[in-house]
Design a protein around this nucleic acid. Sequence first.
DNA 1: CATTGGCACTCGAATAGCGTGAGTGCCAAG
DNA 2: CTTGGCACTCACGCTATTCGAGTGCCAATG
Lengths: 340, 340
Amino acid sequence: MLDDRKLDVLRAIVEDYVQSQEPVGSKALVERHSLGVSPATVRNDMAVLEEEGFITQPHTSAGRIPTDKGYRLFVDKLTDVKPLTGAEKRAIATFLEGAVDLDDVVHRSVRLLAQLTQQVAIVQYPTLSRSTVRHVEVVTLTTARLLLVLITSSGRVEQRVIELAKQIDDETVGELRARLNTAVVGQALTDAAARVTSLPEAFHRDDKAVVTQVVAAFAAAVADDRSDEKVAIGGTANLVRFGEDFDRSIKPLLEALEEHVVLLRLLGEATSPSLVTVRIGHEVPHAQLAATSVIASGYGPDKQSLANLGVVGPTRMDYPGSMAAVNAVARYVSQILSDA
Amino acid sequence: MLDDRKLDVLRAIVEDYVQSQEPVGSKALVERHSLGVSPATVRNDMAVLEEEGFITQPHTSAGRIPTDKGYRLFVDKLTDVKPLTGAEKRAIATFLEGAVDLDDVVHRSVRLLAQLTQQVAIVQYPTLSRSTVRHVEVVTLTTARLLLVLITSSGRVEQRVIELAKQIDDETVGELRARLNTAVVGQALTDAAARVTSLPEAFHRDDKAVVTQVVAAFAAAVADDRSDEKVAIGGTANLVRFGEDFDRSIKPLLEALEEHVVLLRLLGEATSPSLVTVRIGHEVPHAQLAATSVIASGYGPDKQSLANLGVVGPTRMDYPGSMAAVNAVARYVSQILSDA
DNA sequence: CATTGGCACTCGAATAGCGTGAGTGCCAAG
DNA sequence: CTTGGCACTCACGCTATTCGAGTGCCAATG
């Protein structure tokens, strides 16, 4: 049904439309791309492509624009991930390598991604639920107030202030710290809570109550769902580039950006690192973002994915370029995390 | 020159314009406000107000809108901070009191502020330079890699991974931790670097090199200017409410929101807590934001200010309400920080 | 039979003309 | 000083009209 030339035409339409943001006509197509046929032939092909639902015309006397289905075919079959230039790769490396801690990595990544793609970038913080415990620290603030600090393998630091019902002496704190660490360091956070339930038993009965309190706080901290919702957003200013249909594209997107839970659903289930997923228009799991596409990838050390990152923009976007950028940043971040 | 009635007229113009977002005419004014005079009289007053530069007309046959100077007079002389309702106060309290750590406080504040004012809210993290050291922790990751964790009085946690040139044993780490804490806990971060320079001298010569390295990392961490640039932003979606003159108001604002350094300049020099400053239009220290106003306040425990928070929006905003919200949130946050 | 040039047709966008009315400024009277 | 009256201005909205890019169809062609 769709011979090679028709696919060429579709590709040309997508490329031109992405660049010009205007419906593309048969004449302009043959001028800009050397298709080797006349506009009339292209028109015939276009008619078929439209019948098949890959392109559409906004109004009768205008050119064609790709449909979601058209973009989908383009992404799946008609294009490859555009390799980054050496300069881009170097830029990524130098931009990310100065990072001083996890927060820094995340923020640099989001800025970098926004700059590379000229779109809105989103980076999810490494999820606690897929991390392991690197260290637990118990700090005495006052005699009746402790600070619990949890450091994960991915570099995240969670802290909780605990108001104790009863005083606790430094010696007990030291023992508690040691036992906590022995029990959970290296363990997955999802298992950590279970590992500490029996800890209070080892303590003198006078201290059991406070220790139980600390253990409970620790268990609550590692189980806190909200911690997995942490994301960084950047490049919002890039929204202005497609300011035409404000209400249809920018407004819902700005609103979605405020809702971190929505964003995480957009990024989707974590895929394995260096596997970029693309969701186009209606495929995006959020009804208000039907004019939006999402390009996402998991990232994390090793094979498993710790969290997701990606970009969000109008369906009319540079897919090859954005996919390459997302892929590259995900890989670099993964590498940095496995170093650290 | 400006008698009471003229001021009443100005106030009425500001209030109406802020609400309707449309130029207000003499007739509509006397209808909506009981000024007790005829439209003709109001017109005369308006002529004077315009001559003095407090109001202007966008075009000849339209009503008047306030100038920056008009808003300034309104804010300074014609209105008081609108007291919050009991319900609002309660909402603030309950919304903020569930916060579990500093990050949580900041994020909740920014959301709250955005919701209360229906504008873009900005909260600067407590500056390191005005905090004191609460605790320093040195964690052994591997024999040649340490994690330095710095916890400040305001609840901020900074961490640095240090690749050691030489191994270090647990005992030395323990001593280092103890000496570090003795030297700097309770000290201002600005002084902390100086307090640790002589630390290496106390160690065995074999360890001096590594200790010096750690001390240097510590000094670098407390002196890191970039840490003072940390801000949280919320309510960006509220920008859509004034979507008319997109290029003039939204675009530059979105761009400014990406530049944290610019934002901090907007929030301005830290004022003492519970003292709200208002910058209107051209008074804002950023040429591109001439159509924007900023309402900001310092916050922090005690009398001194740790950092700033505020809202940003079009000059045509609800000043009394926003000032009240900013003030209230700043006070509540201050209170929470002094508790914690 | 796919391809092509020709041609009539469609319809959105841009332009121009026009009427309407909110709002003003001025003035003379109270 | 205030007020009603009145002429004037000018942005906004409406309709009419033109213009042209782009299409679909068809007959001719290799």
